[in-house]
Amino acid sequence: MTEAVEIVEVGPRDGFQGIGPFIPTETKLSFLERLVGAGLRRIEIGSFVSASALPQMRDTPEILAACARWPTLRPQVLVPSERRGREAAAAGARDLAYVLSVSDSHNRNNVRRSPSDSADEYARLLDGLPPGTFVRLNLATAFDCPFEGRIGEAQVLALLDRLVPMKPDAEICLCDTTGRADPAQVGALFAAAQARVPQARTWAFHAHDTYGLGLANVHAAYARGVRVFDASFAGLGGCPFAPGATGNVATEDVVWLFERMGVATGIDLSALIPVARDGAAIPGGLPGGRVREALSTNPDACAAARLT
């Protein structure tokens, strides 16, 4: 085995947030239990946001409290502002993913403020977090914006210049919000970012599969030394504030990719496939991915993912 990767399951947040019919809290918890049982350890269980803007996320505090029943689980929550970050910390969240967009248009459409204002809020939030809080910084639209098109490297690097020194040990995640990035762009941006802010310790990648390049982009990021990858079981997802963007790369597809490459993920694909199959059947969801269907007709083939 070569160096292992960490897959961060974002289905319970990114995968669920755009689904119209409210998913009962107990159903969400059942999916969480099964995902943990499949070997996933860091799961983005929801977001602290306006209930009127994203009603599907209104039970995140309740779900966060229930996560104590799974000792191996690191429940991560997404926060888009200083206020929501403080609310999450007060509710007991110790893994926070703060999100802001590189593009002005997307950030204003998402949180009604400029990226510069969001950067100021990030600084203030950091000052008041409880000791030991793990912080991830998500840079949405790092590659492409639904309103402005392709984002230039200089724009991303300028934002990193400002943000990384605030907390050099934060995990930095570059996000392909629209799914329009390509492997060459992904590799080039990670190379430029790593050279620009070498003090950043951990890099992550958040891919969408809108145009079928999700796994290729994951591989391109891996080739640049990235070892943390977001994925959503059943390929559920799509940003409500990015018109046309469909789901994230499917967790089962990412596991299959890395296990075939001889890269350990710690995830039991045979346990994950049934969860993904049930996730694809959630009313109102928009599933994606390929491995789920391929292995559903031949469960014994799960063992073929691991070559060594």
Rank of each mutant, 00 (worst) to 15 (best):
T177G: 03
F190V: 06
A154S: 15
E44A: 05
F233I: 14
V77Y: 01
P183W: 06
A304Y: 12
S81P: 04
D182L: 14
R113E: 12
P274L: 05
E87K: 11
A301Q: 12
R42S: 12
E82T: 01
H208F: 08
C239F: 07
V249L: 05
R292Q: 13
I7V: 15
L129I: 08
E148I: 01
V263H: 07
S296D: 13
F48W: 10
A89R: 09
A93Q: 08
P75C: 08
A66P: 04
L159Y: 11
R290E: 12
L215D: 08
P21D: 07
N110L: 09
A142M: 01
A195N: 14
E259Y: 06
P115R: 09
G225A: 07
P243W: 10
A280L: 10
V79T: 10
E33F: 03
D59P: 08
L100Q: 08
G46V: 03
E82I: 09
S114K: 10
E6T: 14
G179E: 02
D176P: 02
A207Q: 07
G235N: 02
R86L: 13
T297D: 10
G288A: 04
A276V: 08
Q185F: 07
L137G: 01
H208Y: 10
A97I: 05
I19V: 12
G132K: 11
Q194W: 03
G288E: 04
S118A: 15
S52T: 15
V164T: 08
L96T: 09
E9Y: 05
P61S: 07
L215C: 10
P168I: 14
S296C: 11
D144A: 09
M166N: 02
H106M: 06
L129Y: 09
I45S: 03
L160M: 06
A216D: 07
L163N: 01
L35C: 03
S81R: 02
A234N: 10
Q155A: 11
F31T: 11
A231N: 00
L35F: 04
S101V: 00
H206S: 02
D117T: 14
T72G: 07
W256A: 13
A192F: 07
R292E: 12
L215H: 08
P243K: 13
I19P: 05
V164R: 04
E153A: 14
E259I: 11
A68S: 15
R13D: 04
R113V: 10
L295H: 08
D169L: 09
G288V: 09
L125C: 01
G247L: 00
L73W: 02
D182A: 13
A242L: 03
F134M: 12
L157W: 11
P287D: 06
E171W: 12
V99I: 15
A97V: 11
G225H: 09
L286M: 15
L286Q: 15
